[in-house]
Simulated assay, not measured.
Amino acid sequence: MLKGFCLALISVIGVLAGPSRAAEVPADTMVLLTENLPPFNMAVDGKNFAQEANIEGMAAEVVRETFKRAGLKYSMTLRFPWERIYNLAREQPGYGVFSTARLPEREKLFKWVGPVGRYEWTLLARADSPITLTSLEQAKSYRIGAYKGDAIGERLLAQGLTPILALRDQDNVKKLLSGQIDLWATSDPAGPYLARLEGVRGFKTILRFNTAELYLALNKATPDVVVNRLQQALDQLRAEGFVDKAAARYR
């Protein structure tokens, strides 16, 4: 799907000169995929499929405005599950996926534009839980729920923990309430936001164990001139305060 990008490379070498050269950017439409990860990206109706204006969230707003500023065409679709859309973006030229953590083990799998958001990795428990932790090592004796394919669950596995993986992160809200898991490995602000959507408040943070930035990950076949154009546009938006204002609307 990115054939046109490659054919047009000669005509777009000057694209980085500024917004006035937007006409030289390839006209191909990049396919952007995302998931329900409130408050960063989510379907307006809360379902697991949405397109274009029916997708909202702080990162979705930032990505939209970045493409607009860069003069690049795109389509945006929210689908389920995360693992599927992540692999589509990794394998298919012309595809991108957001919001995803830029981890060392993922660095060479994509080309990156961002950050489009920032979050903390946390372990949450019920309000009446007696659990106290100062390290992930201490969590090994507990049942931990995590989201399949997500960076947080992958990190737990890499560190020798055995999280119980759910196809939807919000499923862990009910599992924690019912006692099926002792801890929920999620993020702040996404975890508390998901819990509120399920009508649940009062989960407490047992451990904060990492801070990560979220990115738009583009297929490796994406020309560098396009990646640079997008990054330049995002940097301009951040300098103008757009990114902070978008985040504030969902806090």
Rank of each mutant, 00 (worst) to 15 (best):
W82D: 02
P81W: 05
K73Y: 08
N87H: 08
R90P: 04
E91G: 10
G94C: 14
L78T: 12
Y74L: 05
Y95K: 15
Q92C: 11
L78W: 07
N87V: 09
P81K: 06
P93C: 13
F67L: 02
G71Y: 06
R84D: 13
E91M: 14
E83T: 11
R64C: 02
R69H: 11
E65G: 01
T100K: 13
G71M: 07
V63E: 01
P81C: 08
F98N: 04
N87W: 10
V97K: 03
T100N: 11
Y95V: 15
R69M: 09
S99H: 08
S99C: 11
V63G: 01
Y74M: 03
T77Q: 09
Y86D: 13
R90S: 08
T77F: 09
Y95C: 12
G96Y: 02
F67N: 00
V97Y: 03
A70Y: 02
R90Y: 11
P93D: 13
R84C: 08
G96R: 01
T100A: 12
R90E: 13
R79G: 14
P93Q: 12
Y74G: 06
K68C: 00
A70T: 02
R69I: 06
T77H: 05
S99Q: 07
I85F: 01
E83F: 04
W82A: 03
R102Q: 12
R69Y: 14
L88W: 04
V63Y: 01
F80Y: 07
L78R: 02
E83Q: 15
F67T: 00
N87D: 09
P81Y: 07
W82T: 06
G96D: 07
V63K: 00
S75L: 06
K73M: 06
P93A: 11
R102K: 10
A70M: 03
W82S: 09
Y95T: 13
F67C: 00
A101I: 15
L88C: 14
A101Y: 08
Y95M: 15
K68A: 00
V97A: 03
L72P: 04
A101K: 08
T66N: 04
N87P: 05
G71V: 04
R69L: 11
R102I: 13
T66W: 01
N87E: 12
F67K: 00
A89L: 05
F80T: 07
R84M: 06
W82G: 03
K73G: 12
F80Q: 06
E91P: 02
W82M: 04
Y86I: 10
Y74C: 07
K68Y: 01
